[in-house]
Design a protein around this nucleic acid. Structure first.
Length: 626
DNA sequence: ACGGGTCGGACC
DNA sequence: TGGTCCGAC
């Protein structure tokens, strides 16, 4: 699982920021009277008082732990305040925590590359900011330095008496090595950011500052809550020497157990005894090298610039007697899950201009009269279509396909103990200079949800799920394009505006038969009609569109009717599917382009690749503002 | 009858 | 790829 990355760049400044008992803080902000008293967040309190998923530091003093039941917590801490996770559609609703996490990220992402590692954790690469500070305003006197930064814990400082004094001296050491000075700057930046977070969100957090993610993560947990810890290189060896392997990220599971049980490695330092080859032999090449490196505090793992999640999922378990026994029960719960999922991907689209492309269903099930004892319910996925009903419909088909495979040819009673669906392959929709401009009177979001209006029932043969085929049925293009009211009203393109080409990157041109050029021309056909009875002024929303900082072309996607927009500029050719182009579309083009297009329609039965420099390419790729 | 609900990543 | 498994919070 872990993979070694050589730390090419040696002196990075990496921070890991971890919110303190985050769910509790979110609830305390909502309900300030809870502040200061022992508090825990539980979900579902009907069975033994619910399961604790976050515990305040006041409550921890009483020995309250995560994974206790509410009832247990009350035994060890009678005054504990138990707050329930909101429930929506019969399941836990974590949206409040997700959006609180986003508040934090929006502050933390201002000083450098930011990776959202979980709902309440981020990594920051502050190398550039720290270098700048060091060269412009290096910390030379205590007065220069944020008070919070001076409270940092600096690992490896010898002084046992006054920790804070030592830390302060460390900050302003003029003879410190460059690496340490960078860390000091990083710590000052982090202290400032934490102050901003507190001011703007009322949340406290803890942080670790080090030269790589692994050490930063380790450090952020060392002094909590609301404190920060610095790991100078000089402290790494001693730190790891006594660190139990299980404390290291990635070693909390089977791999860590194996190190202990099979190699007798109890601390990370113990790993130093093993050669890289030995570790590779035992755990495989990648893992072996990775282990060898982390024993030395080496990790080149980079901070990904990613503040948004890569997928959205929701699920629910149905333990013991609650296990679902009928397809009706399964469908009913799937519908609830799909509603939530739909809401979330819709929000993602509205807020972030992103579109999800695959829908995946997971389930756990067992057979009551089991012949094959431990067969797993297979997960299934299909292209994702926007719209609650479509998602529900597709999820149902995915479940049916999975169930058939799960049951095989036997006639068996079954129980489902968990269900989850997720939306993945989420791609940015770069700003539109393409066909979607014709429809930009409305948001991308409404365009897509309109495109998946549920009044038209499409019937995909459910058998197609098991196969490699797309279960998404083709629907009438007019369904998309018919929704033109805002286009007509206030945002129709002017007649002379360049009709943008719709195309896909050639490397993505795997869609067979339903190439996007086809949709493009269908689109032009309709939009040209709309355009012809529209006012000729550029609309307000076009200007807004133009300001989006994404770039380049827009493409109608395979999975949603009006969806994916992909970057083109780097491609030197576009591949067009020339099938089924309505001649009236071509009439809209300038004469010389018309001739060109008619030419390649005649000459090619299926597809045509135009190279950069061709007149068609030039025409369609030229900015209409030019 | 399970820490539940979600995530990310690697592997085949 | 899709599907599975692992690890994490």
């Amino acid at each position: 699982m872990p993979i070694p990355r050589p730390d090419l760049q040696g002196d990075r400044v990496i921070a890991h920021v971890d919110m303190d008992c985050f769910y509790v803080q979110v609830e305390q902000r909502k309900q300030p009277k809870l502040r200061g008293s022992p508090t825990a967040v539980v979900q579902y309190n009907d069975w033994k008082g619910g399961a604790l998923i976050a515990v305040s530091y006041e409550a921890r003093k009483f020995g309250v732990k995560r994974s206790m039941r509410g009832a247990e917590a009350e035994m060890v801490c009678p005054n504990i305040q138990l707050v329930q996770v909101p429930v929506a559609r019969g399941k836990a609703d974590l949206n409040a925590y997700r959006s609180a996490g986003s508040e934090v990220v929006s502050i933390l992402s201002t000083k450098g590359r930011c990776e959202r590692a979980s709902i309440d954790e981020v990594y920051l690469d502050l190398t550039d900011a720290a270098e700048s500070m060091l060269s412009e305003t290096p910390p030379e006197a205590l007065e220069d330095i944020d008070e919070e930064a001076l409270k940092s814990h600096v690992l490896g400082l010898s002084g046992d008496e006054d920790r804070e004094k030592n830390a302060q001296r460390w900050f302003i050491r003029s003879d410190a090595i460059h690496q340490d000075k960078l860390l000091a700057c990083g710590a000052i930046i982090v202290a400032h950011l934490r102050g901003e977070v507190l001011k703007e969100t009322e949340f406290t957090c803890s942080a670790g500052i080090a030269h790589n993610k692994m050490l930063a993560k380790l450090a952020s947990g060392m002094h909590k809550p609301a404190q920060q810890t610095i790991v100078p290189s000089s402290a790494v060896k001693d730190l790891l020497a006594s660190l139990p392997v299980k404390k290291m990220k990635q070693l909390g599971g089977k791999l860590g157990s194996s190190l202990q049980n099979d190699l007798g490695v109890n601390t990370v330092g113990d790993l130093l005894k093993y050669s890289e080859e030995k570790l590779q032999e035992r755990y495989g090449f990648n893992t072996g090298t990775w282990l060898w490196n982390i024993a030395r505090g080496i990790s080149g793992d980079e901070v990904k610039g990613r503040v948004l999640t890569k997928s959205h999922g929701c699920g629910k378990t149905f333990p013991g007697p609650r296990a679902l026994k009928t397809t009706a029960a399964v469908e009913s719960w799937l519908n609830q899950l799909c509603e939530e999922l739909s809401e979330r991907i819709q929000l993602d689209m509205d807020q972030n201009k992103r579109v999800a492309h695959t829908l995946t269903l997971h389930a756990r099930a067992f057979k009551t009269s089991d012949v094959e004892p431990h067969k797993k319910f297979p997960s299934k996925s299909c292209p994702l279509r926007y719209g609650i009903n479509k998602i529900q419909e597709d999820a149902k088909k995915l479940f049916e396909a999975g169930l058939r495979e799960f049951l095989g040819s036997h006639i068996n009673a079954w129980r489902v103990t968990s269900l989850s669906i997720s939306a993945g392959k989420i791609l940015d929709t770069p700003r539109t200079s393409s066909i979607s401009r014709f429809f930009q009177g409305k948001s991308l979001s409404s365009a897509i949800s309109d495109a998946s209006n549920d009044d038209i029932q499409d019937d995909a043969p459910s058998s197609s799920i098991g196969c490699k085929e797309n279960i998404v049925p083709e629907s009438d293009e007019d369904e998309v394009f018919a929704h033109g009211k805002s286009v007509k009203e206030d945002d129709a393109p002017s007649k002379d505006r360049k009709i943008d080409v719709l195309c896909t990157q050639s490397r993505k041109q795997k869609d067979k038969g339903n190439g996007s050029i086809l949709r493009f021309f269908s689109g032009i056909k309709t939009s040209a009609k709309l355009a012809s009875n529209a006012p000729s002024s550029r609309s307000e929303s076009h200007k807004v569109q133009d300001q989006r900082d994404h770039q380049e072309e827009c493409v109608v996607d395979d999975h949603s009717r009006l969806g994916t927009i992909s970057n083109q500029q780097r491609d030197d050719s576009w591949k067009f599917n020339a099938e089924d182009i309505d001649p009236s579309v071509i009439d809209e083009l300038p004469p010389e382009i018309q001739r060109e297009v008619r030419g390649w329609i005649c000459s090619s039965k299926r597809a045509k690749t135009t190279k950069q420099g061709s007149s068609i390419f030039h025409y369609f790729s030229t900015d209409d503002n030019a």
